[in-house]
Design a protein around this nucleic acid. Structure first.
Length: 268
DNA sequence: ATCAGCACCTGTTGGC
DNA sequence: TGCCAACAGGTGCTGA
């Protein structure tokens, strides 16, 4: 599913498409798409969309009354703005209908995605950690987050409660550019490794946003366009192919049940 | 605290 | 062509 760059791309596109629209109602085709802790979606009727942003990997739709509609696309979710009358995709799970006869349609083949209407501070409610681009995340703050952690750094990067937005692809890519093996204990990185990792994270995420994210199979943004960053992966999905820096074959291991790619020569 | 294992779901791909 | 296993951008739960 989308990671930070894909969610950012989706949110930016969606912002121009639905800002200011007034909600008429919500239709739910797959009940479990609505998070059990969500406020009732029917209460959205009559309210306008104020803005669209991103909180970690959530698309955050701000409502004029201060509430937030948080959407997590998980593995295969996508969002589309179309005329309500257009026939529903086979995998459409939920639709927000606007009073101009357009709809925001949530399509999700695997049904993992979730939608949740929140009152109050959404970041707190969603329990997401600091964003990689948050200015408050300097080298000192990053070091404090990592201190004492014994879990592998790659696994640590995927934990959304500490740092939010990084997923499997960009964790692998950032560790490659930082020259750090995925299995290294998070709390055992040296100061220069931490600095390098934070820099690599930001640079790879920024580049991916520039390319509108990465499309493996089904990812498309709010305009239906694919991303282009998958062409630039250094290690992700490149098992056995030569490392782009040293030509030795890229390896694959499992960490926390997730495929993890790295170069054993470039990463120590 | 942390991890393995499994659950949630459907679709695609590759081997035989 | 068919069947089956493995795998996929994510997270949450349970039990050890």
């Amino acid at each position: 599913m989308p990671e930070l760059p894909e969610v950012e791309t989706i949110a930016r596109g969606l912002r121009t498409l639905i800002r200011g629209k007034r909600i008429g109602g919500v239709r739910v085709a797959w009940a479990r798409t609505v998070d059990a802790r969500s406020d009732p979606l029917a209460s959205l009727a009559g309210h306008r969309i104020e803005d669209v942003g991103r909180i970690g990997k959530f698309v955050a739709i701000t409502i004029e009354d201060g509430r937030t509609l948080a959407i997590h696309l998980r593995m295969t979710g996508s969002l589309h703005v179309e005329p309500r009358s257009k026939p529903a995709d086979r995998h459409e799970r939920l639709a927000v209908d606007f009073d101009d006869r357009s709809s925001l349609k949530f399509v999700d083949p695997r049904k993992f995605g979730r939608v949740r209407l929140i009152e109050g501070d959404p970041a707190a409610t969603l329990a997401v950690g600091v964003d990689p681009f948050d200015r408050r995340l300097d080298n000192k703050a990053f070091a404090e987050l990592l201190a004492g952690r014994t879990t592998p750094i790659k696994t640590w990067l995927l934990d959304q409660r500490r740092l939010s937005g990084v997923g499997n692809i960009y964790a692998c890519e950032a560790l490659f550019y930082a020259g750090i093996r995925p299995k290294r204990r998070a709390g055992r990185l040296t100061a220069s490794e931490r600095i390098s990792l934070l820099k690599s994270l930001r640079s790879v995420l920024r580049k991916a946003i520039k390319h509108r994210g990465s499309s493996l199979n089904d990812y498309v943004d709010a305009e239906g366009k694919q991303g282009g960053f998958q062409k630039q992966f250094a290690v992700y999905g490149r098992l056995g192919l030569p490392c782009k820096q040293c030509r030795s074959p890229v390896r694959r291991i499992l960490l926390a049940q997730r495929s993890t790619f790295y170069c054993s020569a470039c990463q120590r």
